[in-house]
């Protein structure tokens, strides 16, 4: 079966994937300044994965890596939440201190990237988690419904058939 789409589709995909991923990262990193945030940016990054799956029909053997990235994102989120446990959980201990993401804003402004404290870091963690999670869901579903090439059954099934 022909898993790849035509050369035109593949070339356009190659050109489009990079801007899509960059736009997703922009949405994640500017979550505390403009409309957007971890969830929306993660969904945009996952849409690049959907484009790759449709155009190429395979993404190699990175399923375990995606699971690891997803778990890392969730653990990062919970760790940042627990770091403020001195006063309360989810306490914003970085805001306004002048260090990393510790700038101050007041009134109407067009937004400075170096503000927000832990909100920015949590946006990043949630963005990592959501992009990996949605990519994994797309991966499994396209493999089951036949859009994606099934992973090569190299030695496992052959040895099984020999055993049988």
């Amino acid at each position: 079966m022909n898993w790849k789409m035509s050369r035109i589709v593949r070339t356009v995909t190659d050109f489009l994937v990079v801007p899509i991923v960059i736009f997703g990262i922009y949405l994640i990193l500017h979550g505390h300044l403009t409309p957007g945030g971890g969830f929306q940016g993660g969904a945009v990054v996952a849409s690049a994965t959907a484009l790759l799956i449709i155009a190429y029909g395979t993404l190699g053997r990175h399923k375990k890596d995606l699971s690891t990235i997803e778990a890392i994102g969730l653990i990062l989120f919970i760790s940042i939440a627990l770091l403020g446990i001195g006063s309360t959980m989810f306490y914003n201990f970085l805001a306004g201190t002048g260090g990393m993401f510790g700038g101050t804003v007041e009134g109407i402004n067009s937004g400075y990237i170096n503000t927000g404290g832990t909100v920015t870091l949590m946006n990043l963690a949630v963005g990592i988690e959501v992009s990996a999670a949605l990519s994994l869901i797309l991966w499994m579903m396209s493999k089951e419904t036949g859009i994606m090439k099934p992973e090569k059954k190299t030695s496992k099934t052959e040895s099984k058939e020999v055993e049988n």
Binding site: P35, G107, N109, S110
Partner: peptide
């Protein structure tokens, strides 16, 4: 307006 400090108090 939308709850973002770019255009409103």
């Amino acid at each position: 307006y939308a709850p973002i400090f770019t255009s409103a108090e």
